[in-house]
């Protein structure tokens, strides 16, 4: 791994009056990685992205891009480009001129920049669309144009603000694979903001979970999913069972807040099981069903894979799990 990180935040804050949108964030994004900033709306993830692109200036702290302190560098002089959430294509320009815009303002001559633009359109599989207007394209196609336009300047870091938010499910999954492949092929750093935890888990090498302007946890998707550091992360990433200390102690763990993944719980015959309770709800999820069992003091959700028999509501069932799956964490929300 290269020594100089693509992006480095040191104690960065951005306050809007009394609102601490970003509050003392330390963050290192390795060059060439696919990094996700995950969090609910208002958690500070988008402000962090805008701090990297330069549209926000930190109230305190230092931001380095590829080792350079960018505190005084305006957005148009940063070697960073953005795919905006609403794509922000120029409505008065053709698709080709949209893509070529970054080269046009640099003074690259017309013939050369239009050739480059067509190459970029080919990269995002939009050959032959150059003469259209953005308004004549579908949402997915506009997204690709925005991507081509951002990549034509050959940025070292590409920022993506909720890039797939406006697409329907099928297209979103296809684009996830494509973005991943594109990032692999270009070898540059992708930083993307999302509120969709499944998107962050499936696409990113590393992710940061944001909560109220701070980073609640940084790690690989597997680490964050399996070992949430706080109650907030457990709640937000996936749909874990969050257990208060007294319940965790009763289930055999330490007396601390703990998470227990629904897929770690197995249904068992009620006779002889340590944990038993009535089924209070079942929900069909396609690949499985979520069965909620009422225990004294808490409800536990278990994921029953498709094909296994489902208990009826009200039926008393037993639950088992491996003790290692009961993961203690900090109580902070």
């Amino acid at each position: 791994m290269p020594d100089i990180p693509a992006v480095e935040f040191t104690a960065v804050s951005r306050h809007f009056g009394a609102v601490r949108a970003v509050d003392g964030v330390d963050l290192t994004i390795a060059e060439g990685s696919f990094f996700a900033m995950l969090g609910p709306s208002g958690s500070g993830k988008t402000t962090c992205l805008r701090l990297i692109s330069g549209f926000e200036v930190p109230t305190a702290g230092t931001i380095r891009i590829l080792g350079q302190d960018v505190g005084r560098v305006p957005p148009n002089r940063r070697n960073v480009n953005t795919v905006f959430q609403d794509y922000a294509l120029f409505p008065h320009l053709s698709v080709r001129d949209n893509v070529a815009y970054g080269l046009m303002v640099k003074g690259v001559d017309r013939a050369r920049r239009l050739t480059r633009a067509d190459e970029m359109l080919a990269l995002v599989k939009l050959e032959g669309y150059g003469d259209r207007r953005p308004a004549q394209l579908s949402g997915g196609q506009r997204q690709r144009v925005a991507l081509a336009r951002a990549l034509i300047n050959e940025p070292r870091v590409l920022l993506l603000d909720e890039p797939l938010g406006a697409l329907d499910l099928k297209l979103r999954e296809a684009m996830q694979d494509e973005l991943k492949a594109l990032q692999h092929r270009l070898g540059i750093t992708f930083v993307f903001v999302t509120h969709d935890q499944s998107e962050a888990l499936s696409m990113a090498d590393h992710l940061a979970v944001f909560n109220e302007g701070r980073i609640a946890q940084i790690g690989t998707p597997a680490e964050v999913y399996a070992r949430p550091r706080t109650r907030f992360v457990a709640d937000f990433v996936g749909s874990s069972n969050v257990l208060p200390p007294e319940v965790a102690a009763r289930l055999g763990g330490p007396a601390a807040w703990a998470s227990l993944r629904p897929e770690a719980l197995r249904l068992a015959p009620a006779a002889g099981a340590a944990l038993t309770g009535p089924v209070v709800a079942t929900r069909y999820l396609g690949a499985g069903s979520r069965v909620v069992v009422r225990l004294p003091g808490t409800d536990l959700a278990a994921l029953v894979p498709a094909g296994q028999p489902l208990p009826a509501e009200g039926e008393t069932v037993g639950l088992t799990f491996a003790p290692a799956d009961l993961h203690p964490m900090e109580g902070e929300r």
């Binding site: 549209f55 002089r77 480009n81 120029f90 815009y101 970054g102 303002v105």
Partner: peptide, 25 residues
């Protein structure tokens, strides 16, 4: 507001943004 930011993001100066994005629109 995005298209003005997009222009700056792609490297345009304030005047270039005015001339190539704001005025035509």
């Amino acid at each position: 507001g995005g298209i003005l930011e997009a222009s700056a993001d792609l490297g345009a100066t304030g005047f270039q943004t005015f001339r190539h994005v704001l005025l035509p629109n």
